[in-house]
């Protein structure tokens, strides 16, 4: 069983974002980067499939990004990936989802993967496009928003989430692209011995230019913070004073306190 997991490094979402000088993306300096939350579930699921097969699977963890992306790949390897693939691109945000998907598909095309796991969406771009596009480009079937995954031979039984907590159950044969939703599993923390082992694992490096893809189909005009409209009262300062103020407000608003 050959498995590909696509992962992306994104900034910590609790950061304060500033717009870059081009006005089209956030300024990366001073931001702490981490593995896209949704992609942790993707790695974990791949490792669980491998464990379910008694180890008879090979997991490639791929990321397109600048040098820092290697850290995300190493985390994937420490969680149980077998090999890292880093496709170097210094300004990946200048590529649209179509180009990212085309790069992934160009890498994957002749490698006979049986299963490809991606996250449902990346937290910074949040487009939720790459997984579905990779599937289309490779001619694979695809199931998105997956919260349950079971493999029986070459057939997967999948639960996908819909609005209001409703789920749909589907069955289909490999090869397959699966986009992973929060709560699909409980991603493991890499242990220290596994972090050490990950350092010895194979890491292949390519340049984005090694895989010619066409022009982008979407152009970014600008990035900006949302307009602060209808914003209510903002209370800041000493905790005790804040507590006095809010207690007074709540005594008016909570029926039980009246």
């Amino acid at each position: 069983m050959k498995i590909l997991v696509c992962i992306k490094q994104v900034p910590d979402m609790e950061s304060r974002f500033r717009v870059n000088s081009a006005g089209t993306w956030y300024e990366e300096q001073d931001l702490a980067f981490r593995l896209n939350e949704y992609d942790e579930y993707a790695i974990e699921q791949a490792v669980r499939v491998k464990e379910g097969l008694g180890g008879a699977a090979d997991i490639t963890v791929l990321s397109i990004g600048p040098d820092r992306a290697v850290e995300a790949i190493k985390k994937g390897l420490a969680m149980g990936g077998d090999r890292g693939v880093h496709i170097k691109a210094d300004q990946p945000h200048q590529m649209d989802a179509w180009q990212i998907a085309s790069l992934i598909a160009a890498f994957a095309r002749d490698k006979n993967f049986d299963l490809i796991f991606t996250g449902l969406q990346s937290q910074d771009r949040g487009s939720g496009q790459v997984g579905g596009m990779v599937a289309e480009l490779l001619g694979f079937a695809c199931v998105t928003t997956v919260v349950g995954f079971e493999l029986n031979g070459a057939v997967a039984a999948i639960r996908r989430e819909m609005e209001g907590g409703l789920r749909g159950v589907v069955r289909l044969a490999l090869p397959l692209v699966v986009t992973c939703q929060l709560g699909l599993n409980t991603p493991r923390y890499p242990t220290l011995p596994n972090i050490m082992k990950a350092k010895q694992k194979e890491l292949l490096t390519f340049q984005a230019a090694d895989f010619p893809v066409g022009d982008s189909l979407v152009q970014t005009e600008k990035m900006y913070p949302p307009e602060k409209k209808g914003r209510g009262l903002v209370l800041e300062g000493d905790v005790n004073e804040l507590a006095d103020k809010l207690a007074a407000i709540l005594k008016e608003k909570a029926p039980a306190l009246r």
């Binding site: 979402m13 771009r125 979407v218 005009e221 990035m223 900006y224 913070p225």
Partner: peptide, 15 residues
């Protein structure tokens, strides 16, 4: 469209 967990917005144009 929203970006960065709704902390930012992007303005996009199809080519």
């Amino acid at each position: 469209v929203p970006a960065c967990n709704a902390k930012m917005r992007r303005l996009l144009k199809p080519v």
